[in-house]
């Protein structure tokens, strides 16, 4: 081919193109692979939140474990933005071949209620919940309140005076705040919600006296708690948190509220069942390893996994609970 004279170059470009096309068509379509060959190439996990956040950490720990079990590379991609809408939508639109998975978070059950996207829990095949975190209430170290009751009374006497933060408007910790107010029998605007870019930003505003209360997961506030800058007054789960055994739950203090954020791996709807089974098996193996447990516990998460069946139920239950809360808190009309 390389001995052609210049005059004939053009026809050879044409020829080369035809050859290329033939090769491409030849290996193009018809490369369906069966489930027992899965996975034969790199898998990517879309994380709908930014690098360095807690969902990112869970994604990376999971990816690392999955990589060892499945024997292919597993990459984490941070598609952050739009309060999780961008990443969740990209995950739902991906080819349902098991090679693009999404680390869903509880926000999947909120964004469609808020009219931000059509993408909702039904666009995904749940595989496994990797961790759950409960909500908790932090106040400043020099705050006059000692217990959750003090906070409740103060809010009741001065509705609308105090401010709370922890995440963006309509995020999981905003819902936690709304749920707490509802359980206390207080109106949704009794605490003014100040949106922040995340728990870390909210906590920073808390100690610089910009706001009064922060709702976030207990682990997110642990460094400042250890530094003596904040106090943890209540946990919004059914049982006490093993990391903070001395902190009472809201239920113990007479306010019946529990709320959990979670992160779970899911595939786009339409992914073949055998591939889903293969992935769930692999994830079960990952969750059972000592490494996974140590890494997760050190990062401040309890290993609290749920299989695909439970995951589906949680998605459905959350969808109803969050939809109701969003309406009660007048975040959506």
């Amino acid at each position: 081919m390389f001995s052609v004279r210049k005059a004939k170059q053009k026809s050879f470009i044409g020829g080369a193109c035809v050859c290329l096309a033939v090769i491409l068509i030849g290996c193009g379509p018809g490369r369906e692979e069966s489930a027992d060959q899965f996975p034969s190439r790199a898998i990517q996990i879309i994380c709908p939140w930014g690098a360095g956040g807690s969902t990112d950490t869970v994604s990376r720990i999971t990816a690392q474990g999955l990589q060892e079990v499945l024997g292919v590379r597993v990459n984490v991609i941070n598609e952050a933005g739009g309060a999780g809408v961008t990443g969740h939508s990209a995950g739902a639109r991906a080819k349902p071949d098991g090679y693009t998975l999404t680390m869903l978070t509880a926000e999947i059950n909120m964004m469609h209620w808020r009219g931000l996207t059509d993408v909702g829990p039904t666009d995904f095949e749940p595989i496994m919940i990797m961790n759950k975190v409960c909500g908790s209430i932090f106040i400043r170290e020099n705050s006059p309140w000692q217990t959750m009751q003090d906070l409740r009374n103060a809010v009741r006497e001065n509705p609308g005076k105090f401010t709370a933060s922890g995440t963006a408007k309509g995020g999981i910790w905003h819902l936690a705040c709304a749920a707490w107010l509802k359980a206390c029998g207080l109106p949704p605007d009794a605490l003014t919600w100040v949106p922040s870019t995340g728990a870390a930003a909210g906590l920073q505003q808390l100690i610089s006296e910009g706001i009064d209360v922060v709702f976030c997961s207990p682990a997110e506030g642990k460094p400042l708690l250890d530094a003596g800058k904040v106090r943890l007054i209540a946990i919004l789960s059914r049982e006490r948190n093993p990391m903070f055994p001395e902190v009472p739950t809201c239920i113990e203090q007479g306010v019946n509220v529990e709320i959990y954020g979670w992160a779970g791996l899911a595939a786009p709807v339409g992914t073949p069942q055998p591939i889903l089974n293969r992935l769930e098996d692999a994830l079960q193996q990952v969750a059972a390893t000592k490494d996974f447990e140590t890494l997760m516990r050190n990062a401040g998460f309890q290993v609290d996994t749920e299989n695909s069946q439970r995951f589906r139920e949680i998605l459905q239950a959350d969808d109803i609970q969050f939809g109701q809360l969003l309406k009660d808190a007048r975040i959506v009309e």
Partner: peptide
């Protein structure tokens, strides 16, 4: 304080 100054420190 354990508060990240940017994404890398996070």
């Amino acid at each position: 304080f354990g508060i990240p100054g940017d994404t890398v420190t996070a």
